[in-house]
Nucleic acid binder design. Structure first.
Lengths: 201, 201
DNA sequence: TCGGGCTGAGAACGTGCGTTCTCCGCGGTG
DNA sequence: CACCGCGGAGAACGCACGTTCTCAGCCCGA
């Protein structure tokens, strides 16, 4: 009954390989080799490669948003001076998103946003994958909107910050640099201050 | 001696098909069918599919930047009230980039940024393609930097506007909407005004 | 101990596709 | 008119890969 275990192992392999090399260049046999899960079992768990791709994106979405939220909530900290309670100032919480992007970009093996990459690769040919990408982006955007709303700032700002974040992800991938996160953060601060001056909380 | 013609026809087909359906899902035979150029000739002109992909990105890069520059220079106008001379105020020229993005997003068949899509698809497996993407993005960024510099505004602003533009492209693709261009333009205006107030020309 | 169903290993199958080869007609030179 | 080389059409080749099948081993109940 370790089919739950096999599933996780398959998804671990899928995540490593799909994210690292792209989806189309990874064969089901590679998944089997990396995961140790036999082809037969793989096809029991995921009736087609596309299902595995969708499941990979789904699981990554949950974890990605969780890690972001944990950082914003201040549960995780390692930036020099440790401050105890985490981010409580609602505007600081908004800007913390960009700090977290910088951490993400610096992780070894960072190769851009898995959803943007998948969309470029399969958005035109696989509706389920395109749907998964849209769902993830919508969720991220709504999370941002929540943070911005909590700070008493308008929805328009949250949309603009979203664009900055997306631009930073793409650029960090193409330039293979974490710098775009900091630049986006500085731009975000200007926008927040600008909106905050007219409609502060 | 119409091998120049054959080359253009091949590139026309490549652009239509690669951009519309993604690169990997288009076969050389599709290129042949659409272009009317025989396989033999195709392989004379482009010794491998990868060469065709690179040539497609190269030609599109030139045209894309040309169309952008033409719009910014004010040679092309159709937005309600026609004004004669084009964009001469250097700050207006900067913001015109975002107007142009909106026009681009609204073109029939728009499917996002060809380079970002290609990067997601082949960035991990094809160094020539990845290089082409980096070259295009660098050129766009430098163009923006020129506009910003001409307006007497700092380089940091240009980097931030670049991130907004990239975010708008990705988001317009995923959401299949032209709205991100306008949003990015409004954010850009705030940033320009912000930098312009402290270091205006 | 016997038998049946599940599992893993891996062969096999079918297809798609990048690339090359074959064949045939045609246009220009002695 | 004979010859030669080039171009087009498309068959052929080789390989990769998604998916399925075969077969042998093993765990379980009677």
């Amino acid at each position: 009954m370790d089919s739950a275990v096999a599933r996780e192992q398959a998804l671990d392999a899928a995540e490593t390989l799909f994210y690292g090399r792209g989806i189309q260049s990874v064969g089901m046999d590679d998944i089997r080799g990396t995961s140790g899960v036999s082809l037969k079992r793989l096809y029991q768990l995921f009736p087609a490669k596309e299902h595995l791709v969708v499941a990979y994106l789904e699981r990554r979405d949950i974890r990605w948003r969780q890690r972001l939220a944990e950082y914003v909530d201040g549960d995780v900290h390692a930036d020099g001076a440790g401050h105890a309670g985490g981010h409580e100032d609602p505007r600081r919480r908004v800007l913390a998103v960009f700090d977290w992007l910088g951490r993400w970009f610096r992780e070894p093996g960072f190769r851009g946003c898995a959803w943007i990459n998948s969309y470029g690769e399969l958005g035109a040919t696989s509706e389920p994958v395109a749907g998964q990408v849209r769902a993830h982006k919508r969720a991220f955007k709504e999370y941002l909107a929540g943070l911005v709303g909590d700070a008493g700032l308008p929805a328009e700002l949250s949309e603009q910050l979203y664009l900055l974040a997306e631009g930073a992800m793409v650029t960090a991938a193409v330039e293979q640099s974490a710098e775009p996160a900091a630049r986006a953060g500085r731009a975000a601060r200007i926008l927040v201050d600008s909106y905050g001056a007219t409609a502060g909380d």
